[in-house]
Deep mutational scan, measured.
Amino acid sequence: MKTQEELTEIVRDHFSDMGEAATLYVQVYESSLESLVGGVIFEDGRHYTFVYENEDLVYE
């Protein structure tokens, strides 16, 4: 099982292909040891929320 830090790095790496991230945040109260819930805000103003669970990243 991966730590939240490892899950955060996986998510950060995925979003790095989409541009320069200004902020990546984790909603600790919705996350667990198995999943990471949060969002990313890019330098150009785009904002996505995400759920990373079971090696699957879903974002909108």
Results as ranks from 00 to 15, higher is better:
D13V: 12
Y25M: 05
G38Q: 03
D56V: 15
V37H: 09
Q27N: 13
E5R: 06
T3E: 03
H47D: 01
V40S: 01
V37S: 10
F42C: 07
L36F: 08
E6R: 04
E5P: 04
N54I: 05
E34S: 14
Y29G: 05
L24C: 09
N54F: 09
E60D: 07
F50M: 00
E43G: 09
T8K: 09
V26P: 02
V51C: 08
G39P: 00
M18L: 11
M1E: 07
V11R: 00
F50A: 01
E30Q: 09
Y52D: 00
S32R: 06
D44E: 02
D17K: 15
Q27H: 12
Y25E: 05
E34F: 06
D17C: 15
M1G: 11
L24F: 12
E9L: 10
T23H: 13
G45A: 01
E34H: 09
G19I: 05
I10H: 05
E5G: 06
S31G: 09
S16A: 12
Y59W: 13
V11W: 04
V37E: 04
D17W: 14
E9N: 12
E53A: 13
E43D: 09
E55A: 11
F42D: 00
F42M: 07
E43L: 12
Y52E: 01
D13N: 14
L7P: 02
V51I: 12
F50S: 00
V11D: 01
H47K: 06
Y29M: 04
F42R: 00
R12W: 12
D13R: 14
L7S: 01
E30S: 13
S32F: 09
G38N: 02
E30R: 03
T23G: 05
D44L: 06
Q27K: 11
E53Q: 13
G19H: 05
E9I: 10
V26C: 09
E60F: 13
V40P: 00
D44S: 01
E55H: 14
E43R: 10
E60C: 15
T3F: 05
L7G: 01
E9T: 11
M18F: 10
T23I: 14
M18K: 07
D13S: 14
V40E: 01
L33V: 09
H14T: 06
R12Y: 07
S31R: 04
E9D: 10
Y25D: 05
E60G: 07
N54Q: 07
S31D: 07
R46V: 03
L36E: 00
G38C: 10
Y48W: 06
G39L: 14
H47N: 03
L36W: 07
T3P: 04
S31I: 08
F15R: 01
D13H: 13
H47F: 07
M1N: 12
E55P: 04
T49Q: 06
E55K: 11
D17P: 10
M1P: 13
V28S: 13
D56S: 15
V26H: 01
D17A: 15
S16M: 12
Y52L: 08
A21L: 15
Y29D: 04
Y25Q: 05
D13P: 03
L57I: 09
G45V: 05
S32P: 04
H14V: 09
R12S: 04
T8S: 07
M18Q: 05
V51G: 01
T3D: 04
Q4S: 04
S35I: 15
F50E: 00
E43C: 13
Y29N: 03
L36A: 03
Y48Q: 00
G38D: 01
Y25R: 03
Y52G: 00
T23R: 05
E9W: 09
L36D: 00
D56E: 15
E9M: 12
T3S: 09
D17H: 15
A21V: 15
